[in-house]
């Protein structure tokens, strides 16, 4: 793996220009590393050619697990381990088990899916975000292009980005340290002198 990374960053203002721009750039044969947006842009995943999200599948699997868990728990407690006559009902009174089974299904599905989401996207409290342009969480739409992964020259890509109506195009290099952000380092920097070049200056 390379130690330093070199990127071209393209900044867009309007979401429709951005979507058309992405299509134009990919059509011209430039590989886009990733797009960063302050809000979800619909159809951007199609423009970037991403596969559909499999989160609903995770939700279904965890939900099924929850149902199984709840039915097993209630049956084993009420009918097998300690059967008791309650209101003359049968030990195994399935209709009474429906509400708890439903709630467990929802609980498992929601937590399982969100857990999968956080895990698969590597979202965690001590993660140091790698920020290309600070405005990408405010109002601008940002594209990052990894120069090492493209066969075209930097100037050629710059041309293509300009053609795609990018407002601003500039080069950004990440040192090895910035590339593999360490949380401890981030904290020390934060309370010493403010953080990396990507962030706003601390007052």
């Amino acid at each position: 793996m390379e130690k330093e990374k070199h990127y071209l960053v393209a900044v867009f203002d309007d979401q429709d220009d951005f979507l058309h721009g992405v299509e134009h750039i990919r059509h011209a044969g430039v590989k886009i590393q990733e797009a960063f947006t302050p809000y979800p842009v619909h159809r951007l995943e199609d423009a970037l050619g991403y596969e559909r999200s499999l989160m609903p599948v995770a939700a279904f699997c965890f939900g099924a697990l929850g149902t199984t868990f709840a039915i097993t728990m209630q049956t084993s407690m009420m009918a097998i381990d300690w059967p008791m006559i309650i209101g003359g009902k049968p030990f195994l009174s399935i209709p009474d088990f429906v509400p708890v089974s439903f709630e467990c299904t929802v609980l498992f599905a929601a937590f399982g899916m969100v857990g999968t989401f956080l895990f698969s996207n590597d979202l965690k409290p001590y993660k140091v975000p790698k920020i290309f342009d600070i405005r990408s969480t405010d109002d601008k739409l940002v594209l990052a292009i990894d120069l090492a992964k493209n066969s075209l020259s930097e100037d050629q890509i710059k041309m293509i980005l300009k053609e795609a109506k990018a407002e601003e195009v500039y080069r950004k290099d990440f040192t090895e340290e910035e590339n593999e952000g360490s949380f401890i380092k981030y904290l020390i920097d934060l309370f010493n002198n403010g953080v990396t070049r990507s962030s706003r200056q601390l007052s």
Binding site: V41, E45, S53, L123, K124, K127, S136
Partner: peptide
């Protein structure tokens, strides 16, 4: 949680 607003994360987030 180290959110960076990448298109891939947004796609999963929407789902």
């Amino acid at each position: 949680l180290g959110w960076d607003g990448s298109a891939k994360t947004w796609m999963h987030y929407e789902a």
